[in-house]
Each structure stands twice: as structure tokens, then as C-alpha cells.
Design a protein around this nucleic acid. Sequence first.
RNA 1: GGGCGAUUAGCUCAGUGGUUAGAGCGCUCGCUUCACACGCGAGAGGUCCAAGGUUCAAGUCCUUGAUCGCCCACCA
Length: 900
Amino acid sequence: MPKEIPKAYEPQLIEQKWAKKWADENLFRADVNAPGPVFSIVIPPPNVTGSLHIGHMLDHTEIDILTRWRRMQGYNTLYLPGTDHAGISTQRVVVRQLAAQGINYRDLGREAFERKVWEWKAESGGTITRQMVQLGESCDWTRERFTLSPELSRAVTEVFVRLYEDGLIYRGHYIVNWCPQCRTAISDLETVHEERQGHLWHIRYPIVGTKEYVVVATTRPETMLGDTAVAVHPSDPRYQHLIGKMVLLPLMNREIPIVDDFVVDRDFGTGAVKVTPAHDPNDFEIGRRHNLPEIDVMTDDAKMSAAAGKYAGLDRFEARKRVVADLESAGLLEKVTDHTHAVGACDRCGTIIEPRASTQWFVKMKPLAEPAIAAVERGDVEIVPENRRTEYFEWMRNIRDWCISRQLWWGHRIPAWYCGDCKEIIVAREAPSKCAKCSSGKLTQDPDVLETWFSSALWPFSTMGWPDDTPDYRKYYPTSLLITGYDILFFWVARMIMMGLKFTSHVPFRQVCLHSLVRNAEGQKMSKSKGTGIDPVELNEKFGTDAMRFTLASMAAPGTDIVLSEERILSYRAFANKIWNAARFVFMNLDKYETAGGEQLDALASPEVRASAPYAAGGEVALIDRWIFSRLARATAQVNDALEHFRFHEAAHVVYHFFWGDFCDWYIEWVKPELLSSDRSKSAATWKNLFAAVENALRLLHPFMPFITEELWQQLPQREGSCSIALDRFPETHPERLDAASEEHIALLQEIISLARNIRAEMKLDQKQRLFAQLGATSPAVQCVVERSLDTVLRLANLSSLSFTKPPFDSTKGIVRSNKDFDLFIPYEAAFDVHAELSRLRKEEDRLTKDIASKVARLGDETFRSRAPEHIVKGLESTLAVRRVELEKVNERIVQLQRI
RNA sequence: GGGCGAUUAGCUCAGUGGUUAGAGCGCUCGCUUCACACGCGAGAGGUCCAAGGUUCAAGUCCUUGAUCGCCCACCA
């Protein structure tokens, strides 16, 4: 006996209730010993800013749909939770927050800073947990969240040491991207390039011992203070005589050489370039080749250093102005031209990065990239959609060494120690007590930490207990699937593949599904720093998580980014409401049925009984019951196929139209009188079928709308021991339930009903007006189908009677609607709008005439007949015949009406 | 500079070379019918960006162009 279903659908109450229960009882815990094929899935750590923004919500929605679907199909599923594993990015958030208050984190002191980070983590961790609960994420809640885990730290150290031993990690002095706000090095991927309108300053460098000068062009005049050469192309005729000579660096009065180097572009600027090895990657290389000194003219926070002479202490942009002014007054500025160029900015704080020569830790990428390229080429890792493969290859083939050290205070400390006596570098798993070379005890650990993505790259196996050989690792690794946004293909996906292959000899996942990014209504990319993010908690509370999930799934077509709008969410909120009310209708009447002495329906919950649907009444299964189970089987197969290929929008579309269209609009309306029939033996079968259909529909919908389906499913009588719809089975495809005849017959009846309704609407009749329709069927079979469902047709079409008559009908006496199987005639004594009907018919005539002409032309074409496949030709021929009959009928009616 | 994507109904978007191109929202008309007005029923609404090409057949494949957007890039 079902319990009371509240009249109003209130998603917040339901969602809170089930999210808590699922979490408290840990219902979806992965069991390494459980049978079944394995489905393990990697989810992105929500650590990038510490809050789950709407983009992550798409990750989690898709992942959770697939996890629930696979679990219901009997897979042994594992869902790797998102844990803030490194927290380096967490530091960035706090650094930014402090900066907003005008505090530089370094001024706080290390201890106070770490305390702030912990406070923030505790607070934001709570927010993230709440968001995940709202999403109904069916993950394994036992795993630790939002803490720095010793296991993960151990894996990171292990990887660092092994890479070092293999010569793949080295400490080197190179140009890195330096963020003066965060005061750390950042990787190439962490910089964003923007086209900016700038200038090209042409500066005269006097040649020593002559009155000549050479003109160099630069976009960054302040760096000239650190120039240590001028370079020209080796075969540039303009400058041959100058190679080897010295110039006097203006403002600094330092003599520097003119060198030749092949990287110089003769066609850019003046063909002569100033060389600042400490502040430009190209210049750095030139400096190496010509043994030039490096002069770093800036400090950590991009102010001019003591090496900048009288400009020391100035901000770099202020220094630029002063340098330009000084050059101008010295008559050394030849000209200034406009020039657009790309400027790199810090991905996190937006500060213009400063290329700066610095000693950092690097990973050699080529040897890691090669096997990773091969793995994707072989198809060991399948990337969906396919076109992202190209991007992956492109990036991997042009990969450069990766700077992994960060001058930050939070994260995995680099496991390297420096000997204070002999300067030896010791990389080790445990802190060494003395220098391996000179036995000195004066060891200090590198103060730097590793960047976030270094540890993220280990995610698929470090979370499974690697380097230990754990049961989880053996069972679930390599994982089945990674789902994430395409924006982190390089940051994360590519690096996981490289690290997975290097350390486990396996790819970390068999498939990668890269989904689109979510934008807001203005089309802006979701971004916290720009304040354009949408808070998913707000939307969930407003519309319900089920509606949000369904919206995201329905819009998740690959290819283009998603623009989220409230209107769209609202339409799926209405869908949830529809489900609620349909179920409420069933429960309310079931209650009446049972109290009136009807058969108890509890037995339907067992899988064996379930499999025998649709049920027969008096030895025969009703047409409508055959039909709804045929539609259900079809929908299930389509959903399976769509989810198999990550086509979430298709799957959502199918369940939406199955439930609203087939189930609510037709099936429930069709069987209503049966349900309330006084003949209990007859209504029992109808009840059982309706019940089974509802139950199947809920299971079909569950991955997409977990909360409402759980709530309603729990109201159904269930077999002993059932605790969640998510642990029940997904509907099976049941090929034997596919029933083409029933679908054809119902389609015919639906068409008669729709056309009758159309006539009533066109004639502007009210609902109470009695109509006596006549049907001219083209075959006895059609007539037979209609006769057998006559009562239903009369009721749904709102007709008083339907008699079978031989056409043609007199169009002047009423309205006729036709299709290939029948003519439906509704006589009407009063005048109706002849003009409206005529214009409708003329439009119809026009359409049919054009259509017939095009078909005749095509069928008359011999090449078409000989080359097109037979079913196309045959199909066209039969359609043409149908159109001709239709046209004939339309013409006939036009002629009749014109006589009026 | 290189690469990618998009352009389809008023709006937001689906669309697998084939027979009348679909959905949601919005719009029009009619309904308080005892699950649901977050609803029911019936409609209107399309030069599939442009021009070429391939094909028996193009919204779909190719080329070029236009417009919009994104990613990558050490020309000072």
C-alpha cells in the first residue's frame, strides 16, 4: 500500500532527505570483491579554486549519470572522489584574498599564513561537501576528503625520486614565467596570452670609437638596463662591418659587443636586436651561445633591482616611462611605432608575467611524451570526441620541459636537500641525516613545493594506494573512463597518461570523454576571478538538483559550449513536476483500487514477475499494454546506446519524450477508465501493467533524476531487502517486447484522434458540442483496428459517435481530414469558415503539388533508378502514390467548396 | 602566425548523405476535464550564413569567402 504522496513536488525536501541517507548509510560503497564487470571512473579534484562551480557540476552530472547507469547494469563501480590532494592552488586563493586586503602573504610569516590556509580549507571544504551532496553524487563517501593525505604525499615523493634517478628531473637555470604578485615561477600553461596594443621603441646604441650608432627596436625598453649585447643576423649585409665591434649601452654607459646569431629576424624592426639574457627566452639562448653575462635588473616583485642603477626601486612600468624619457632627452630615441603583441599574464592573478632567468626544477618531457603519443595512436586511450586527438598530438609533439618547482609555502615540499659544505644535491625518499658525498650534516631542504598538476598527474593510481600493490589497484586500475572539460586536456589529461605509462606501464584510463564548457547567459566563460561564475547551490535550491542535472545532461551535446539559462532549467523543473503528478495519480488510484478489494500488487516487485510484463487479461494482452512496453523497450535501447557513446543529450531527449509523450499523454489517458472499472478481474491486468510501466519508467529515469525517482520508487511496494532504486536494475532492452504491429496500430488511432481534435478546434466548437463522425477506411484491416478501440477513440477524440461510411464525403457539409489509411468526416450543419478551410486546402495543394513534382522528376531520372539503393527507390514510389491520393482528395474538396 | 569550432524557427539549440528538417521556451486559438495551469488540446512559424563543387541524392561531404567564438604560439 503506497504512502501518502504530498500534492506539491518540493525538490529541496526530497533531495536533502535522500542525499543524507545515501551518504549516512554509504549505500554506494565500492566493493572490491563484488562480482561483475568493472567500471571505474576518475573525477577531477575540485581543488582549482576550492569551490565547485558550474563547470564542475557538468563533470559531476555526467559522471554520476554514467556511474548510476553502469551500477544498475550490474557493473562493479568505483568512483574516485575528488580530494584536495595538494592544496597548492588553495594557497593561491588565500594569497589572492590577502592581496585584495593589501597584504602580501610573505609579510604574514609562514605560520600565520598556513593557519589562514587551513581556516579557508575547513570552510570551503564544507561548502564543497554540501555542493556534492546536493548533486546526489553517488561516490564512495568513506574516502578521505579535503585533507593533505600522507598516502598521496608518499606517492608524489616516490615519483619525484624515481624520475630524478632516471635523469628525467633536473635542476636547471633557465628563463621561466615569473609572477611578481604570487612571487613564484609558473609553467607555460599557467600563463594566458593576450593581444595588447603596445609600442615599438627604436633606440640608438652608439658604436664605440665612431660617431655611428646601431638602432635596435624593442617593446620593453626598461629591459635595456640588463642588455649585455646587440645581435644581428650573420649574413645581414647591413651589419657585416659591425659584428665584433662594441656599442655603448645608453643610460648605463656599459660597453657591450655586437654578436651574430641566426635567430635574429632580418625583416623585423631594424634587423638588430638588443640582447637581455636575464629577461627574454630568445636572448637567454643567444647569451648561452655567446657566453654573455646575465644581468637580472628586477627583484621578486618586479621592481628594478640594484643592477638597474639609478632606476633601482622603481616599478617596472614606471621604469619604462623614465627610461624612454631619458633616452628621448639624450636624443637616442629614433622613433616610436604602434605595435600589437601578445603579453603573458598569470592565469591566477592576472599580473603580467616577467620572463626571468632563474634556477628551478624541470621535468624532461620528450621521453615521457613519446609513449603517451603512441598509446593514443594505438587506441589504448580513446579520446572522445575524436577531433580532440589532433590537439593532443599537436601539443605532445611540441612539448617543452616542464617547470615544476614553485616558490610557494603550501603543498608537497620538493624532496631535495642541499649540502651546505660541498653543495651536493641529495634527492631522497626520507630526509637524509648527512651528505652522501662529504658526510657533512649541514643539509637544508629545498624550500620550494611542487606545482599542483604534478601530483594531479598521479591521481588515477596514487589514489589506489600505489606504490603498494593493493586490491583496489589490482581490481580497478587502469580505470575505465575519465570525464572532464576539454580545457584541461593538457594540464591534466595528457600528464596523467604520461605518468601512468611511466610508473604503472598501463594507461591510466581506457577512455577520455571531453565535454564542453558551461557559459552563463551572457556567453561568458565561467570564471571565479572574473566574477562570472554561477553558484550551483543557488540554482539547485531554486529549481531542484534533478532539474539542474537534467538540464545539463540535455545540453551536453559535444562540440559547442553550453549556455545555461534559467528558462531551460525551468522547463525541466516542469518535467520533474510532471513525473511527480503522474506518479501521484497512480498512487491515489491504486489506493482506491486496493481499498475497494482489488488484488494486492506487492508481488510485482520481484524481478521474475517483472520480466513477464505486459500482463494479459483473459488470455490476451491489451493493445495499449503491448504498445507501452514496446515503446519502453525501444526507449531503453536508445538510452543504452546513447550513454554508451556519451551522448547525454540524446539519452535525456529519449527519456523525456517517452515519459511525457508516450506514458503520460497517451498511456495514462488511454487506460484511465479501465483503472476505475467496476470489473475487478478486468482492471487487475490494467493495474498490473500500469504499475509495471511506472516502475520501469522510474528506473529508466533514475540516472538522470536520482532524487525524485528514489522518492517515488520508495513509495512502491518493494521486495524484501530493497534499499535504493540505484541498487536495483536498469530496465532491460527486452527485444521480445518490441511490437511493430502495436506501434503501427496505436499510431493510426492517435492520428484519428488528433485529426478529430483538429477539426473541433478549426471549427471553433466548444467541448460540449456533440459530434457524429464518419470514417472511411481504405482497408478492412484499418476498420478492424478502429472498431476494436472504438470506445477509447470516441472518448479521447471527444466524439459522440463514429460510423464507418464509404467515401467520398461532401466537403460542403462538414470538414474532412485524410491520411493514407482513412478519411475522417465530421458533418456540421451550421456554417463554418469556408475561406479559412479553402486557404488551408490551397496551401496543402501547393505543398503536395511541389512534392509530387520533385518525386516524379527524381523517379524519372534513369541514373537515380540505377544507382540509388532499392529501398530508397521503392520508398519514394510508394510515398509518391500516397501523395497523389492525398492531392486528389484535396483537389476534390477544393472543387466542392468553391461551388458554395 | 598556426589550429579548432560555430552559423538551422522570434530565442536557446538538436539533427547518423536518402523519402514532408525536429525539441524546449516564446507566440496564436480553445479549455479550470476529478494527476498535473509547472497543466490539457489544436495551431502558426524555416532561402538550414553565402557562392561554387562532389554525388543518382547535400542541412549533412569538399573548396572558398563572410561573421562570431575558442585554443595554441619565445618575432624583439
